[in-house]
Amino acid sequence: MSSSKNDDPISEKILNVAKKNPKGISDKDILAAVPELSAAELVSAINKLLQEGLFDLYNQGGSLIYRLKGQTSKQAVKGADNEEKVVYNLIEDAGNKGIWIRDIRLRSNIANTQLTKVLKNLESKKVIKAVKCVNASKKKVYMLYNLEPDRSISGGAWYQDQDFESEFVDILNRQCLRFLQQRADKIKNNPKGPVVGRTQSFASAVEVQKYITDLGISNVKLEVEDVITILNTLVYDGKAESSVLPDGTKVYRAIESLIPPPGLVQVPCGVCPLILKCCSTGLITPQECKYMDDWLEN
């Protein structure tokens, strides 16, 4: 949120406390959190924040309570009817994980048609937005307009507008493999022995991340975690194996399959979609087979 840009350290501290207590904080809470603050400093800081419109002020049981404002709550509340407020609150509570329309309906008890209207309304005011959920394409969730969707919703680095970027993943997969392969041969006949050779053929996710970053093929910043995800696809591809070093780092090494392609896939039948329909007599037979013809041609 924009408030974190505030470079005044005192305000920042106060804001942090406020963020942790969405129900609101009192003067006492602030002093507990920022003990080095004098009363005057406190007042001026609070005033500044109030001026910036970051806080709501309440009177609760005789003491003043400051509550952090959602940035847009002003607009939403302005000119909104009760339904809109209810819906807005539900959506706000859901945070950046969003909330499903069905859950809004169940919790708010607003009839379907009206709810749709309310949501449309809020959407057109750019108070909320609908976000497609990556792991269930039909499912849309609502969240506040200014929120960045959570990874579980947006899918993180691999998604562009909720579309999975498989080409990007493929390229990364290939590049990671190349990197591992460059050092894979170190284990072979290494003059320092195979244990050293093996260590030299290993690459950690951090090294791979650096390599990928240096290549400059990605315009999104890839976290180590993301690189691990890609490296794991290589493991599932059977092109790499992972081990854990004594110090706990996970490392990867490119490997080859134990055997060259076996007999079955060297003949057309091994890859033939009709293999189960192919009989001694009838329409599909080995005698007349076109695949066999082509294969025997060369």
Binding site: G238, I259, G270
Partner: peptide
Amino acid sequence: AALDHTVTERLGSKAARIFRL
């Protein structure tokens, strides 16, 4: 290993990935 090769050739490397997964 033989199975992996077979799946790769029949259904592609992506299917083999799923298979191993």
